[in-house]
Simulated scan of single mutants.
Amino acid sequence: MTQKQLIETVKQHHPDLQDAQIRIFLNKALDEFCRKTRILKTLYTFSTTIDKRYYRLADNILEVTRVDYDNYRIPRLVGQPEKIDTDI
């Protein structure tokens, strides 16, 4: 369905809404759909520090699915770490 068709469908039920307002609502619904389905993936990079295990992530990062360092995948930690360094 095109955006024009979606706007026409919404206008059938809400004829007083302007096209711009409908587009805002449609974009919010699209963002919510993408967040719930985890359909969009994004790559984030940042600098690391020697002997530091934990890092504060940006607020918009919802889930970490994979970590690479120098083109090598870092395996997930299973169990508890031997050393805790939570001074983030």
Rank of each mutant, 00 (worst) to 15 (best):
M1H: 13
M1Y: 11
T2R: 01
Q3S: 03
Q3T: 08
K4V: 07
K4D: 06
Q5K: 07
Q5M: 04
Q5Y: 01
Q5E: 08
L6N: 01
L6M: 03
L6K: 04
L6E: 02
I7A: 01
I7W: 00
I7P: 00
E8K: 01
E8R: 02
V10H: 00
Q12I: 03
Q12V: 01
Q12A: 05
H14F: 11
H14K: 08
P15H: 00
P15L: 00
P15Y: 00
D16Q: 09
L17W: 05
L17Q: 02
Q18G: 08
Q18C: 06
Q18P: 01
Q18N: 08
D19C: 00
D19V: 00
D19N: 01
A20P: 01
A20S: 02
A20V: 05
Q21M: 06
Q21K: 08
I22R: 00
R23P: 03
I24V: 14
F25I: 13
F25L: 10
F25A: 13
N27R: 05
N27I: 02
N27D: 07
A29H: 05
A29S: 03
F33W: 08
F33H: 09
C34V: 07
C34S: 07
R35F: 08
K36Q: 14
T37Y: 02
R38C: 07
I39Y: 12
L40Q: 14
L40E: 13
L40S: 09
K41W: 09
K41D: 07
K41C: 08
T42C: 10
T42A: 12
T42S: 13
L43Y: 10
T45L: 08
T45D: 05
F46Q: 01
S47Y: 12
T48M: 03
T48F: 04
T48L: 08
T49L: 06
T49A: 10
I50E: 15
K52C: 03
Y54R: 09
Y54E: 12
Y55K: 02
R56H: 09
R56Q: 14
L57R: 02
L57P: 02
L57F: 03
A58M: 12
A58T: 11
D59A: 11
D59F: 10
N60P: 06
N60Q: 08
N60S: 10
L62I: 14
L62N: 14
E63T: 13
V64D: 04
T65E: 13
T65R: 14
R66Q: 14
V67P: 03
V67F: 04
D68R: 14
D68Q: 14
D68V: 10
Y69M: 12
N71D: 14
R73L: 15
R73W: 13
R73E: 15
I74M: 09
I74H: 08
P75I: 02
R76V: 15
L77I: 05
L77S: 04
L77C: 07
V78W: 13
G79D: 05
Q80N: 15
K83Q: 14
K83I: 12
K83M: 13
I84Y: 13
I84F: 12
I84M: 11
D85S: 07
D85F: 04
D85Y: 05
D85R: 07
D85A: 06
T86E: 15
D87Q: 12
I88V: 06
I88Q: 06
I88E: 04
